[in-house]
Amino acid sequence: MGRKDAEDPIQWAADEDRDLQEIATWEPRTTLDGLATVVHRLLLSGGRAAIIGLALAIVAGQFAITVAVTLEDPILAVYFALSIVPALGLVVLIWRSDVVAFEPIETLSVTFLLGFLFAGFAAVFNSSFRGLFVGFGAIGMVFYFLLVVGPIEETVKLLAVRLHAYRSENFDAVIDGAIYGAVAGLGFAAIENVLYITQGYMQVAATGAGGLFAPTAQTAAVRSFAGPGHVIYSAFAGYYLGLAKFNPAHRGPLVIKGLLVATGIHATYNILVSNLEGVLNLVPILGGLPPTLGFVAFVIAYDGLFFAILYGKLSRYRRTFESVGAGAFYDRSP
C-alpha cells in the first residue's frame, strides 16, 4: 500500500478500523471539540461579514453624492444603466457558453453585488498609492498600473468570487470560475461607471454652464466601452480560480497565474489608453481620428483580441466536455 501525501505515516500504516483520534486524526467528539468547531465557524463567517461591512461603509461614503445628484436629476439613472449594457451583454454571452450547467441567478446576483461593493477597496488603495508614482511622470504611471491598479482591482474582483460563489455547490466545474469572474467584473464596472458619470456631471455643473446632459451622455458612452474590459480581465482570473478549485495540489500557483494574466492585460490596457495618441499614431488609419473615436476603435480592437482568446479557452473546454461525454452527468437547467 502506497503512502498518500495528505496522510500521517500512522494513518496509512494502521488498519482502517483503528481509532486514531488525537493521535493522527481528529473529529469533534467532546464538548470542547464542539466549542472549537463553533468558534471557528463564527470566525470565518465573522471575517466575511467584517469584509462585506467595511466594503458597504466605503461604498456608502462614495455613493452618497451620487444618490443626491440622481434624486435631483433622475435621468442620470438612465445613463448609469445604459453605460453597463455592453458589459452586461458580454457577461450573458459568457454565461450562455457554460456547457455544464447554467449558474443560478441567485449566486450570480450575490457575486455581482460583491464585485460592486469591493470596488470601494480598490478605490481606496489606488488613491492611497498613486502619490508614490505620479511624481515620476509617464514611467511612474506605468509602474503604478502594473504594481497597484492592475493587481489590486483584479484581486478584489477575485475576492468577490472567492467569498461566496467559490464556496457554493453551484461552482462545480472549472468553467464556472470564468462565469463568476465575469459577473464580478460587471459589478466592479457598474460602480466605476456610476462614479465616473457622477463626477463628470458635477464638473460640468460646477462651471455654471447650461447643457449638463450632453457632456454627461458623452461620458456615459465612453464608460460603456470601458466596462467590458473588466468583465474580460476577471473572467481570465476566474477561469484559473476554477482550475485551482479542482487541482488543490496546485491551488496557490494557479490563483497567482490567473491574477498575473488578468493584471497584465488590465495594466497594459491602462498604459496604452494613457498614451493613446501615440499608440494611434503608430497605426496610420487610426492616427487622424478624433480622440473619442480613436478611443472607441482602440477599445474594440484590444478587448476584441482578448475576448477572442478567452472565448477560445471556453470553447476548448466545451469541446473536451462533449468529447468525453461528461454531459450525461449534468442537468443544464438554471
Score class of each variant (00 low, 15 high):
73 D>H: 15
181 G>L: 01
211 G>T: 00
109 S>L: 12
102 F>E: 13
137 G>C: 05
134 V>M: 11
169 E>D: 12
196 Y>A: 12
184 A>R: 06
72 E>N: 13
133 F>S: 08
166 Y>A: 08
107 T>K: 05
81 A>K: 02
73 D>F: 12
98 D>P: 05
142 V>Y: 05
123 A>P: 02
114 L>S: 05
74 P>S: 05
212 L>I: 01
135 G>E: 02
69 V>G: 03
69 V>E: 11
176 D>R: 03
174 V>I: 15
132 L>I: 12
152 I>D: 03
79 Y>K: 07
117 L>C: 05
153 E>R: 02
199 Q>F: 13
159 L>A: 12
179 I>Q: 07
106 E>D: 12
176 D>W: 04
201 Y>N: 05
190 A>F: 15
98 D>G: 05
137 G>W: 05
66 T>R: 00
135 G>L: 03
174 V>L: 13
168 S>V: 11
78 V>L: 15
64 A>I: 13
98 D>H: 00
72 E>T: 14
119 A>N: 14
166 Y>S: 07
159 L>C: 04
114 L>A: 04
79 Y>N: 12
162 R>W: 13
184 A>C: 08
91 V>C: 15
133 F>E: 06
191 I>S: 08
129 F>Q: 00
176 D>I: 04
69 V>R: 06
95 W>Q: 12
92 V>N: 02
68 A>W: 01
81 A>R: 04
134 V>H: 11
99 V>Q: 09
127 S>A: 15
151 P>D: 07
135 G>T: 02
122 A>H: 00
137 G>Y: 01
173 A>K: 02
197 I>G: 06
158 L>C: 09
110 V>T: 13
117 L>H: 00
73 D>P: 09
180 Y>C: 09
200 G>C: 06
165 A>E: 04
209 A>M: 01
145 F>Q: 13
108 L>S: 09
176 D>N: 12
73 D>A: 14
123 A>F: 10
99 V>I: 15
179 I>F: 07
212 L>F: 09
189 A>F: 09
103 E>W: 03
161 V>E: 00
71 L>Q: 11
190 A>M: 14
208 G>E: 01
125 F>S: 11
